[in-house]
Nucleic acid binder design. Sequence first.
DNA 1: ATAGGGTTAG
Length: 714
Amino acid sequence: MQMQGVGFFLRVPCSHSVLRMRAIPVSKLKCKALQPFTRPCSHMPNVAESPPSTLVQQFTKFCYQRDLPRAMIAMEAMQRRGLWADSVVYSELVKCCLARRAVQQGKLVHKHVFSNGYQPKTFLINVFINMYVKFALLEEAQELFDEMPERNVVSWTTMISAYSNARLNHKALESLVLMLREGVSPNSFTYSSVLRACDGLSNLKQLHCCIFTAGLESDVFVRSALIDVYSKLGELHNALGIFNEMVSGDLVVWNSIIGAFAQNSDGDEALNLFKRMKRAGFSAEEATLTSVLRACTVLALLELGRQVHVHAVKYGQDLILNNALLDMYCKCGSLEDANSVFTRMEKKDVISWSTMIAGLAQNGFSQEALRLFEQMKLSEVKPNYITLLGVLFACSHAGLLEDGWYYFQNMKQLFGIDPGREHYGCVIDLLGRAGKLDEAARLIQEMEGEPDAVTWRTLLGACRVHRNVDLAAYAAKQILKTDPDDAGTYILLSNIYANSQRWEDVTEVRKSMKARGVIKEPGCSWIEVNKQIHAFILGDDSHPQIDEINRQLSLLIDRLMAVGYIPDTNFVLQDLEGEQREVSLLSHSEKLAIVFGLMSLSKGKTVRIRKNLRICGDCHVFAKLVANIEERSIVIRDPIRYHHFQDGINSKHNISNDEMEKFLVQKDWIRRWFIDLEGMVNGEGRCAPRMPLGLIMCKSTAHSTYAHGGLCVP
DNA sequence: ATAGGGTTAG
């Protein structure tokens, strides 16, 4: 071993006819792993002194044994003595470097095969391009690719795949065109790579044609890539079409199609496909279960989610699967389960923390969410954009103005995150709730970029609570500019006017609503009972037990009214008047779902409802009172957050008798408004009448069932 | 030597 001398040069004769001696001083080779072995070492064979054929054999052996340090020494000796191994052997060595993320060694091998003007085969250059791509050294890969004399499908595909992964969509598509111009035919590898770079339907259609013409449509890789792109572009119909053409199955293709529906919030179809998959004889594994969990999350199917959990256990510490599980429990309102999954997770990434923080916040456990965020700060995981959203959401939910404002102001400095539109939204909500409407409005103006409808809607909500009619009208106007058919805005505005007795304005809003032909999405609530989903849609009475449900609801309302419940018609989001308003309110789908839950679930079981629209104030009160007098825990999930109504003494949403008194006093204005309305209708002021129960019966609800009938998962 | 499926918010 004579490698320390400064003046020592590696002499590597080039195997080509053009002899270009280019010596590399050993001292310039920066290779950490090489250093310890440059000195003689007793247990190390002295490869440098072996005869040439043995040296190459030994190098080959080390490469196949994945013995990187010895292979590097042998390679160096070969380089000094002008010996070369077969290309395949180098590719084995590169594999070894990739597996160990040994970037420096990889670069050395690259230098070795190119030293002294030696021109490696296309095959071997491809190996190095791929190596640089995998090391995320795109520039090095590009340079090699540009300078290679001949590029084959693999060279092009490797670069296209790199561009697709780096989200350089344009470059990926452009490369496909260039390769076609060079006369290289794309194969299934090429298409499945370039499909990932498709971000528009016109591109996709063209590519699909090429694939079809090339007869590559039935390749499983191409098929799953096609399904994936169509699904990402929201073209589920096409995705399903491609899937259904599959003759012989493939688990990944099944996972693609199940994931497609789950990600597009069609949990029902995702579960149907999952059942089909099982019938076709496939076993679920991590990716399948993750998508099935997402379907459960979308449909708020806690019980089915639990069944999936049982099977997920066998995959132990799969991070993505655990994150999906965590999210499912949070979104199904079972924080105990979520927390137990979270504590058991050995590895937690930013998604695990964000999911748990947002989950706590959305379920009303704001303090716990903030406490968890403090814990996260102590861990090595850095919060991101979404984590901060959860934190701000927690603050706005709990009305923690100071904390929220602090995090918002210091996001950039503390965590390096620029506040985005959604962060502004949380803070606008926070200020709005605190009654600081002007500051909220000012913040909207300070926002970068045009505020969107969601932002204005936040302000509108705050205006409703704090009865700022003029600002409300302004905000509503802004929403209707971008979203002129938003029924909720018209109704909210009309209700705000009604609150302030501005009847002319009420009429005006309703007129313009009618003129535009705006239709409100009907309220829909659903509940899982006995492995079936029971859906209640306003205005539909097809549920088989609807008569009994209505009878029970009447009885329940009687009992509630006896303890002072007054339907708050202020929340009727319909174009109705007087008594009719009240009837409509009492037939809100969540009330029927709650009653059905009480009827069908055994005592002590939590009634879990999911609904499509935000819960109205009256139903909120109704649920609170029902939870109280029926001694039931009720959890209602609306599109934004969760409402926990618990029977327990220590529960935060529990109402004691005192509190109920207080509540009724606070809500006295409802009573007053009621009288006003009656006066308007009947020409005289009189108290709100008791509910005519018969009327409740005729406004009944809808039914549809989806039986998932005990999915036996894998 | 090159390729496909899963997780947080909106």
